[in-house]
Design a protein around this nucleic acid. Sequence first.
DNA 1: CGGTAGGGATAGGGTTCT
DNA 2: TAGAACCCTATCCCTACC
Lengths: 191, 191
Amino acid sequence: MGAPKQKWTSQEETALKAGVLKHGTGKWRTILSDPEFTSILKSRSNVDLKDKWRNISVTAMYGSRKKAKLALKRTPSSHDDDNATALTIVAIANGAQHISPLPPALSCAPPRDFEGLFSSVDKMILEAIANFNRHLGPDGKSILLYVEERHNMQPDMKRLVTSRLKHLVNVGTIVKIKHRYRICRNGAEQS
Amino acid sequence: MGAPKQKWTSQEETALKAGVLKHGTGKWRTILSDPEFTSILKSRSNVDLKDKWRNISVTAMYGSRKKAKLALKRTPSSHDDDNATALTIVAIANGAQHISPLPPALSCAPPRDFEGLFSSVDKMILEAIANFNRHLGPDGKSILLYVEERHNMQPDMKRLVTSRLKHLVNVGTIVKIKHRYRICRNGAEQS
DNA sequence: CGGTAGGGATAGGGTTCT
DNA sequence: TAGAACCCTATCCCTACC
């Protein structure tokens, strides 16, 4: 009869993002218990946090969970980098059309100077990994969030970051171990 | 292109109502899986059931979804019972204007004998709860449906039932727990 | 038992068709 | 134009698996 559907406030959402930045994804109970966030999120459960984070990240990446599933079906698993550049260009094209103010960290590079744009994004990614305060390194979503928060990245640009992240793994600049990224010291590392 | 707009047959609608009576509202997939209804409703999805039920109940209560929204805006949230009597009288007034044949269960009470009318409706509500064959008790819409089906209540009178339901909760005759109603045995129950 | 991941269901706003 | 049918997706729920 009533409407038991508690919409997330922007304050709660901010707290959740900060929590993920601090503790990483998958640490929902930890985030909830952190005195920095517990009061803001007191009406949420760990499962709520997990669901909301899924919603946030999947929306930013694909637009919706349904589209995400379809996209993942079209790209069953690998092909991680074959079309990365294509994806990137599509992202840039979309971004150029939709983004009103170019994010400051990017505006230093001319919109069509792909090389410059790439290196700018790459630097942000490396910075995100370097500044991550946990031993295992951040996962992809934490990197995206870092770039978004620190460099005012527009949501439309997330595909670009994702693509460059894959590229940096493929060229060996960084390594990906169990869905977490770290800067590669020498050639390659085995898990 | 893809949707020739499949109108609901009265048979389907009957099955849906029976399903809600049996399983309660919000159990669309359960209703769909019930062997008693699955063949009749085989061309409908759980979402279709939900949407149709919204049309049925909201139409009965307010006339249309648009009017429902306006009505709910006027009564933002609580005030659940302050104006219950007022609403009731409005409903009766509307009913007196629009209802052609007074429902049998009500016609025993003179149209303006509010006390008699109330106790008659109250009895129907208690009967609905008593006869509900699930432990948690029916929700508001199931009660409305029960009264409509068993006592030939006209749709225009639903507001009256709703108001009396709220009243019975407020005076402690029945308790409302998680949007479901049950008859109160002693004083109060805690969840 | 407590926690997480993931699939799936529901609620409610929005859209299309008639 | 209103109302019925349908779509979209944030939120919530359930279950398997540690």
